[in-house]
Design a protein around this nucleic acid. Structure first.
Lengths: 416, 416
DNA sequence: ATTGATTATTTTGGCGTCTAAAATAATTCT
DNA sequence: AGAATTATTTTAGACGCCAAAATAATCAAT
C-alpha cells in the first residue's frame, strides 16, 4: 500500500503536478503555477528550469493580447507545454472504417484521416497487421522518424487491456482480435486498447473535473448502448478493461435478442436498432444487425412526437429498460451523477417519462434521491479528445515526471 | 490531482508504510522492516526511533520462542505496535440488539458486550442519544478517561456517511435515523457509519490483500442479501456511503415484494425469507418480515436435499435471481473475483446450478470467463474485524503518520 | 530622463529526509 | 579469547523544499 518515499519521488510528484496544472489550465506564468500548485516560487523556478532544459515546456511570449496594460511591475512570462515534446496517435475503429489522428503534447490534433479498412469480415489473424501497417505509414507520413510515443485504440465492445485485443465487438465478426501486439512490435511503443465509452468519460473528465470527478456514470445512447464509469474520480476499467458493459447488462431474463447473441440485454431494448425493431413489430428474437440510418430514427421520432402510439410504445419500452438499468447501476454503485449522452438522446423527451418511472420503481428512494440525472451533448470527437487526454496523462505520469536520467519517451511499459 | 510533495510528505508516507507493514505482517525487526518496505536501515532506525519516542510502537523481547538457536550474529529486536497507543470502538446494530466492542492498536478486542436496545420501534429522534449514552458508559467503564480515538458503526442497510445516519435499514422502522452526530458530540471523536457488508469486505481484504485486492465483489447471503465491493484494491463506498445495495438491485420489474417495499429486488428471491416464502407457496406480494429461524432454513434445505420438488424449486428461483444479479454485476464492473459468503451459502449446492445457468445466460462469455466465483466461509466476527481494521487504518493514515507536531489522536476530521 | 514603486523571477542559505558506507553492538562458533 | 556473523546506529553527503534576500523588468511620477 503506497510506495517508499524519497527525494526522487518528491521531484517526480512535483513535476507531475506542474505539468498537470499546465495541461489543465493552459499556459501559466511561474507565479501562477506557484499559486496553482502550492509550491514556492523557488521550487517553481527549479522545476521549470529543468523542464525547459528537458524540452518538455517552454517560455512563450504573448505578443499582443498580453493585457499588460495598466499593470505595474515585472511582466509575467507564461510557460507552455512544448507541443513538439511528444506526439500520440489515436485510432478509432468503426465498422469497416478506421479513423486515425495524431495529436501533439498540447492535445491539439495535427493530422487526421479516415481509412476504409474492412473490419467486420476481417480475418482474426491479419487485421492487426493490416492496421499496424496503415498506422505506421500514416505516422511516417506526418511525423517521419519522430514517430509517436503512445497509441490508443478506441472501439465499441469488449476491450482486453491485458492482451491488447478486442474480445468482442459489433465491429468484428471474429472474436478475440489481437490489435496491440502487432502495433507494439512495429512501432516499439505502448499501445492501449480501450472501450470508446470509457474514452468519452475521459473526455468529460478532462473538460470538467469539478462536475464529473466524483462518481459518475456516463450513458451513451446510439446505435448501441455504452457506459463509461468514473469512480472516485478516475475512469474505471475493471479487471481486464472490459468495464462497463452497461448495454449488455441483462434487463429481462430470456428477453429480446441482442446483437451479442444473448437474450434480454438492455441494448436489445434501448439501442436504435431495438427501438426500430419494436416500433415495426419485428419479432424480438430476430437479429437486427444491419446499420441504422439516422434519418430513419428521426422519422420514427417525428411519428412518435405526432402521437403515433406504436412509435411511442417503442420509446417507452426503451425508457423502461434504460430506467431499470440505471436503477440497477444506482443500487450497486451509489453514484452522484448519471449523464445521458449520444445521438439516442435526441428523443430523450420520449424516453424520459418511462425511464424516470422505472428508476422510481427500481431503486429505493433513499439512494436515488442523491443522484443527479442530466443530459449532456458534445461533439462527436469526444472520444478522440478523451483518448488523447488519457494518453498524454499517462505519458506525463510515466515519462515526463521522471527525472532527466530516466526519461525515455518510447519505453514499452504502462505503469499502473 | 495529487498533492504537493515535500520532505514532510516523505516522512509521513514512510511512517505510514512502516506502520502498515507492522499492522499487516505482525512484529518485525528493523532489518525485516527494511526488507518489507524498501527503506534503508538508516531510515528505519530514524523512523522507528521517532515512533518509539511518540509511543506508537515499542521494542518487544521475545523471550522463548525466539528461534535464535543456531543463528549467529547480533540478534534481532522485533518492534510491535504499542497496543495502548490507541483504542477504537465498534458498534454493530441488529434488530433490537446492539453489540459493542473495544479494540486496541493491535486490533485485539479488549472488551465486548451485547446490549438489548430497542431499534425497530425506536424513535428517530432519541435512538442516537440512547446509543451514545450506552456507548459512552461502556467506554468509560473499560477505558476510563482514556476513551477511544474512533468509533465505527456497522449496520445492515443504507448508511449515509455524509450525515452519519442510517437512511434505511431493516433494523429500523424509521428512516433517516441519525447516529453519528450524537456520539461525536458526546465523545468528541470521529464516528463512521457504514454498511456491514462493506466491513466484511474490509475484513477479507485485511486477511488476504493478495487474493482480494483487485476487483472483488463479496456477496453475503443470509436473512438479507448484501454486497461489499472492492474496486482497485479498496472497498468502494459510493458517493454517500450507500454502495453496494446488491440485495435491492432490481431483479424483475414488478416482481416479488421486498422488505424495502419495492417490487422485484434480488433479495425478494434470494434471501432466506424469500426462499421460505417461495417454498411454502406464500404469495409473493405478501410481506414476510418476521425473523427467520435458522432451524427452519436447515429443515428446508434437508427437504430439498431429500428431493422435495417444491423446496428444490425455491432454491432454484433463488439461484436464478442471484445468478442474474451476479451477471449484471459482472457486466457492469468486470471484476476478477466473486466471493459468496454468509449463512445462506450452506445450501450453496442447491443454489449453484441455477445460478451458473443464469450467469451464462446473463452475460457475455468473454467477460465472465475471467471471473473466479468462489465460496468463502468465515466466522461471524468478520464484520468486527473489518471495521476495526478500517478504523485503525484511518487512524494510522490521519494521525500516526503525521509528525510529532501534528499528532493528535482525537482530532475530529476524517481525511478522505 | 531619472527615481521610486511594483511585481516576477532567481539566488542564497538552511532544514529535513534519504542513502551508502563505516562504525558499533551483540551474538555464536571455534 | 578471538573470529565470524548479523543487527543496528552513526556519519557524511546528496537532493529537494522553503523563506528571505537579491535581482530583473516593468510602470508611474516628477
Amino acid at each position: 500500500m503506497g510506495e517508499k518515499a524519497d527525494s526522487e519521488l518528491v521531484r517526480r510528484q512535483n513535476r507531475r503536478i506542474v505539468l498537470d496544472a499546465l495541461r489543465q489550465r493552459g499556459n501559466l506564468a511561474r507565479v501562477e503555477l506557484g499559486r496553482a500548485t502550492g509550491l514556492s516560487p523557488a521550487s517553481i523556478t527549479a522545476i521549470s528550469a529543468q523542464l525547459i532544459e528537458d524540452k518538455i515546456i517552454e517560455e512563450v511570449d504573448e505578443p499582443m493580447g498580453s493585457a499588460l496594460t495598466g499593470k505595474r511591475g515585472r511582466p509575467i512570462v507564461r510557460l507552455s507545454l512544448r507541443a513538439e515534446a511528444t506526439h500520440v496517435a489515436v485510432v478509432k475503429i468503426s465498422i469497416d472504417a478506421v479513423s486515425m489522428m495524431l495529436a501533439d503534447f498540447q492535445g491539439r490534433v495535427t493530422a487526421e484521416r479516415a481509412f476504409r479498412i474492412p473490419t467486420y469480415g476481417s480475418e482474426q489473424a491479419t487485421f492487426g497487421e493490416t492496421l499496424a501497417a496503415t498506422l505506421a505509414s500514416f505516422i511516417e507520413e506526418h511525423r517521419g522518424k519522430s514517430g509517436v510515443a503512445r497509441v490508443g485504440i478506441a472501439v465499441q465492445g469488449l476491450a482486453d487491456s491485458r492482451s491488447g485485443s478486442i474480445n468482442w465487438s459489433p465491429v468484428f465478426r471474429a472474436r478475440h482480435v489481437p490489435i496491440a501486439p502487432a502495433i507494439e512490435k512495429r512501432l516499439q511503443v505502448p499501445v492501449m486498447v480501450v472501450n470508446d465509452a470509457n474514452m468519452i468519460a475521459e473526455g468529460l473528465l478532462s473538460m470538467d473535473r469539478e462536475s464529473y470527478g466524483g462518481n459518475t456514470a456516463v450513458v451513451f445512447l446510439g446505435y448501441g448502448v455504452g457506459m463509461g464509469l468514473i469512480l472516485n474520480g478516475a475512469v474505471y476499467h475493471g479487471a481486464t478493461g472490459a468495464a462497463s458493459e452497461f448495454g449488455h447488462m441483462n434487463h429481462l431474463p430470456d428477453g429480446a435478442l441482442c446483437r451479442c447473441g444473448r437474450k434480454g440485454c438492455l441494448e436489445a431494448y434501448a439501442a436504435d436498432y431495438a427501438i426500430l425493431r419494436t416500433a415495426y413489430g419485428t419479432p424480438q428474437d430476430e437479429p437486427r444487425m444491419s446499420a441504422v440510418d439516422p434519418a430513419q430514427m428521426i422519422e420514427l421520432m417525428n411519428k412518435a412526437k405526432a402521437g403515433d402510439t406504436v412509435a411511442l410504445n417503442a420509446y417507452e419500452a426503451a425508457g423502461t429498460a434504460l430506467g431499470f438499468g440505471i436503477a440497477r447501476t444506482i443500487a450497486l454503485l451509489n453514484p452522484d451523477r448519471i449523464i445521458l449522452a449520444g445521438p439516442g438522446t435526441r428523443a430523450l423527451e420520449l424516453i424520459e417519462p418511462a425511464m424516470h418511472r422505472a428508476i422510481k420503481d427500481g431503486v429505493v428512494d433513499e439512494i436515488s434521491r442523491h443522484v443527479t440525472i442530466e443530459h449532456v451533448s458534445f461533439d462527436k470527437d469526444m472520444i478522440a479528445r478523451g483518448t488523447i487526454d488519457a494518453l498524454l496523462r499517462g505519458l506525463v505520469r510515466d515519462v515526463f515526471s521522471q527525472g532527466p536520467s530516466r526519461a525515455s519517451a518510447t519505453h514499452m511499459e504502462f505503469a499502473k
